[in-house]
């Protein structure tokens, strides 16, 4: 199968792989310590500091590597949490139908009607901001979208004859959800997973930029923009590196998601 990977997916895989590798191996790769002050304020790029230094003289490359680690970890964990809760509730609502479906769906509508950024800001303003709390808040607020998607896909599958056959056989709810419906609902969910992961990266970066996300001295991409934004006035581009990182990560993850989607929609191997 590997030789059938199209070029776009290959590029996506290489970049995504590189980002995740750097994130995991950050302490081994980074040239300096994360919070170590090693030079002057906003030094230009040199052989000592490949990307220059930041607003208090820390090595920017090191900050970017550690920042990527934090951002990718939080985004991935929050996406997983949001898909686990959203999809299981969505499938459950589709299978149960009736009042349970109404209650769940209207609650989700209610949550969706409030802009999630504002809701997150309010919640984070009253609880202590730690990494687990951030993941929890982001994951649960975003679970509304996988819920909607999985429910709408599952409602269609739920009326197929093979699901009816399983019900007539006397199968339990778990079998129907996980063995009959989920495998057939997976394709759109996989595509959505890639997309939501990127939205999570943007979400955590936004929160950090506003000061309610990852707290210093821990580095993350949104935080780096916040710390270095004043430099733009003096022609210092330090705040732009995280933007480039986010953009390339977003594109490469989606290239991979597209490819996975292509492969899973056709049975027994895709057409590439």
């Amino acid at each position: 199968m590997i030789k059938n990977i199209p070029l776009s997916a290959l590029i996506g895989l290489i970049f995504t792989g590189a980002y995740f590798f750097v994130a995991i191996a950050a302490p081994l790769i980074a040239p300096y310590g994360m919070a170590e002050v090693v030079g002057d304020v906003w030094e230009p790029a040199s052989s000592k500091h490949l990307l220059g230094t930041d607003n208090i003289g820390r090595d920017l490359l090191t900050r970017m590597i550690y920042g990527g680690r934090t951002t990718i970890f939080i985004a991935a964990a929050a996406t997983l949490l949001s898909f686990l809760t959203g999809t299981s509730l969505g499938l459950l609502a589709a299978v149960l139908g009736g009042w349970a479906d109404q209650a769940l769906s209207r609650t989700v509508d209610l949550i969706m009607s409030i802009p999630s950024l504002i809701l997150a800001l309010v919640i984070l303003a009253i609880v202590p901001v730690t990494v687990p709390i951030l993941i929890l808040v982001m994951g649960l607020l975003d679970a509304t979208r996988p819920y909607r998607l999985s429910r709408s896909v599952a409602v269609d599958i739920n009326v197929m004859d093979y699901v009816e056959a399983a019900k007539l056989r006397g199968e339990g709810r778990a079998w129907i959800i996980f063995r009959e419906i989920l495998p057939n609902a997976l394709s759109p969910l996989v595509a959505e997973f890639g997309l939501r992961f990127i939205f999570m990266v943007l979400f955590i970066s936004t929160l950090s930029f506003l000061g309610l996300g990852v707290q210093p001295p821990l580095a993350d991409w949104g935080g780096i923009v916040k710390e270095n934004k004043d430099g733009i006035v003096y022609g210092i581009g330090a705040a732009l590196y995280p933007a480039v990182a986010i953009a390339t990560l977003a594109i490469s993850v989606n290239l991979v998601a597209d490819w996975v989607l292509n492969r899973t929609t056709s049975l027994k191997g895709g057409r590439g």
Partner: peptide, 10 residues
């Protein structure tokens, strides 16, 4: 319809 009476992923 035999084709929708069987789960296409089994």
């Amino acid at each position: 319809m035999a084709d929708v009476a069987m789960n296409p992923r089994q």
